[in-house]
Simulated assay, not measured.
Amino acid sequence: MKSVFGLGAKSIVVLSLSVSLAGCGLPRSGPSKGEILAGSVEKMGSTYIVPVDERVARAASKSPELGFSREFITAGVVGSDVIHPGDTLSLTIWENVDDGLLAGKGVNATGLEQLQVDDEGFIFVPYAGRVRASGNTPETLRQAITDKLKDQTPDPQVTVARAAGDGATVSVLGNTGAQGVFPIERPTRTLSAMLARAGGVAVDPETAQITVTRHGRTGSVWLKDLYKNPNMDIALRGGDVILVEKDTRTFTALGATGAQARVDFDTPNLTALEAVAKVGGLNTHLADPKGLFIMRDESPAIAAAVLGQAGLKEPQRVAYVLDLTQPDGIFNARDFVIRDGDTIYVTEAPYVQWQKTLSVLTGTASSANAISSAAGG
């Protein structure tokens, strides 16, 4: 009777704990592949599940490329010697007489300092009146002033000096060697030259992004593309604002990967294969190589191309799934480009939950034996 009671007690304990275990579930890193598929549009969910093949990888990998508009590219180089409103000039006028118009007796040279070009582009010179300076070079302005004075004093000689770029400056901000306002001079009339003048970039060149704002319009370019493509090395204009910043894009990795984290991009183009490698690859003890998901809110244009549904007007939730066990699986992962805000999720292999269940049940049986032994003792 005692052994029968012991067997029954153990059975009751194991059965009770098994039922309890089934009801509460086991710890895991996230939803299973089946649970994700159950939320598909086909099953009245809100997410499109799209297996990735060569066509899908190509269509889904289209992302806006950085670059300057035609308006920036076609702007010609500004001559560094052209005078602009706001420039400050200094004049020296020599007169070929002992008692001239401007110079005192015994002095034949007169200096006029800190002549600022007004908003309309003029300066005032005694006995010459208002003279247009803006749009002229120092040489053409010198000739214009000479012409106005030569009828009033014999053989006047004029020199014009300009504080280079006082009215043609750019602001350089962000991660550079030196931030500040810099004049557009002959050596610094292009974007790359001005960046060099500001001490270069102070972040990894692979992730350095350059943005130029001009009259309310902006354009951006990767630093490496600036040097690779001469068209991106645009001519500067007075008032331009140049911002240098590190790439701010990120993606999130979850599930059965080597690490679960929010990860910064370290290259302009990052593929799914590279992204998984950045977080330590797939967890060999947990990951299902058939369940690599890339989840994103896809733009209407790309969603239409991927899903084959014309006329989409709103962003669509799409879960792209990569099966790395397929012959082209790794190639497709290599060609699938990750975008800012993507979530990469790797599901656990089906056997993992069975393994956890068996492990817990084995522990439960051992506990039941201990309880039965205690009861029988």
Rank of each mutant, 00 (worst) to 15 (best):
P156L: 03
L307Q: 10
G281Y: 03
L15M: 15
G341D: 15
V241D: 12
K313Y: 11
G219T: 09
A375F: 01
A374F: 07
D328G: 07
Q260S: 15
A133Q: 11
T159A: 11
A196N: 14
I49R: 13
F72V: 01
A259W: 03
G341Y: 02
P315K: 05
S69M: 07
T211G: 02
P27Q: 12
T211L: 03
T146F: 07
R55F: 09
E314M: 11
I93N: 02
T250Y: 03
V170S: 04
A133C: 11
A9R: 01
S29K: 14
K150P: 00
V346E: 10
F124G: 06
A303N: 12
P327I: 07
G199I: 08
S90P: 10
G255H: 04
N175R: 12
K228Y: 03
Q260L: 05
A374W: 06
V360H: 02
T74F: 07
L191V: 03
G281C: 05
L149H: 00
T325I: 05
A310R: 13
K62E: 15
G280W: 04
A305F: 10
L286C: 13
V107R: 10
G34L: 09
G180E: 12
E139Q: 13
G25K: 08
T92F: 04
L91Q: 06
R197S: 14
E42F: 03
G167F: 04
E95L: 01
